[in-house]
């Protein structure tokens, strides 16, 4: 017996198609916000308000000639972008969008750790992709990706544990559904730290050293063309959406919100997307108002400031969960 609902959920909503459309939409949003903050108008002519711009870019890249450089490690060079993209989409499937994630209603205990691990693997594949291109800029760019995400993964995991402690569960669905008061109000410091770490993990300004055009040309993407480049771009965009979705689930109460006239899945999706867009706006704003750090400043910032702060945040949370929150909630 074939479970059509499951197939629909995986392929269309809230699975692959939804994720793809959401990603392209967020990409357009980012470009638009950036343009508006810089006194420009941004994409205008592809579709109404330029909303189809990311789609046009994607299709165009798919139809371009696909070049594999002679020196490149062919297998890794060819497959790394696609595999990274697949893993990111798979990780996204664990995030409850319409009140339930794609695969199961409540996920399982510990899926928070699993999806963070998936995100790390995807990052590692991106590093491999750059490394396999055997281009000096690509190699240096990917080496920077590696150093950066290895460093920032530790505080990211530690800070992600804060909401887990408050909710008393490592399952994302439970964490999201237990936020009667959104955790941003209970642990605002953790929210701020998480946004900063996320920014670094997603390699956005002021932490976008792996993409420093003035030093590294195209970074790890330098040698990529055509469809492979399209999937590299798409992986990046899914990462951004995934990171923002994580913020929504952990701190902003997940997809939950007021439900009118029954159809809860519709309202949950709406709340989820709206909250997601708020987070995207915040991160894009940060991107626009700062200059890029230097790689050594990025790394020392992590070990000297962010890691101790994450540990403190965790200790504070444990203390609060033990003695204070029981009085409030």
């Amino acid at each position: 017996m074939i479970d059509f609902t499951l197939i629909f959920r995986i392929l269309v909503f809230p699975g692959f198609t939804f994720i793809l459309l959401l990603t392209l939409f967020c990409d357009w949003m980012e470009r638009k916000i950036e343009a508006r903050l810089q006194n420009r108008v941004g994409p205008m002519v592809a579709g109404p308000g330029g909303i189809l711009q990311p789609l046009a870019d994607f299709i165009k890249l798919l139809t371009k000639e696909d070049i594999t450089p002679r020196e490149a490690k062919k297998t890794v060079f060819k497959f790394a972008p696609l595999v990274a993209f697949t893993i990111m989409v798979f990780a996204f499937c664990f995030i409850p969008v319409d009140g339930a994630s794609v695969l199961s209603v409540n996920g399982f205990s510990g899926d928070l750790i699993v999806i963070l691990a998936f995100a790390t693997i995807a990052n590692f594949l991106l590093f491999l992709a750059g490394w396999a291109s055997c281009n000096p800029y690509g190699t240096i760019g990917s080496a920077r990706v590696l150093t950066q995400f290895l460093g920032y993964d530790i505080p990211l995991f530690l800070i992600a544990l804060t909401p887990a402690f408050i909710a008393g569960s490592l399952s994302i669905a439970t964490i999201a559904s237990s936020q009667v008061i959104p955790f941003i109000l209970l642990a605002p410091w953790a929210f701020v730290l998480f946004i900063i770490t996320m920014q670094a993990e997603l390699e956005k300004d002021p932490f976008d050293v792996p993409h420093a055009e003035s030093e590294l040309v195209g970074g790890l993407e330098t040698e990529y063309t055509g469809a492979k480049l399209a999937f590299l771009h798409l992986t990046r965009d899914v990462q951004v959406v995934f990171g923002s979705a994580l913020v929504v689930e952990l701190f902003l109460g997940g997809p939950y919100g007021p439900v009118f006239f029954g159809a809860s899945w519709f309202w949950y999706t709406l709340w989820f997307v709206l909250k997601l867009l708020v987070v995207v706006t915040i991160t894009e704003y940060i991107t626009c108002v700062f200059a890029r750090f230097r790689i050594d400043q990025v790394l020392s910032g992590n070990w000297r400031i962010l890691l101790p702060a994450a540990l403190l945040s965790l200790m504070l949370t444990v203390a609060l969960v033990t003695w204070v929150y029981p009085l409030v909630v």
């Binding site: 903050l37 810089q38 420009r40 200059a291 890029r292």
Partner: peptide
């Protein structure tokens, strides 16, 4: 200079 240090907004403002 803004462009070189990854501060694109500054670049856009000055050129505006």
């Amino acid at each position: 200079a803004g462009l070189e240090i990854g501060y694109e907004t500054l670049f856009q403002y000055f050129w505006r």
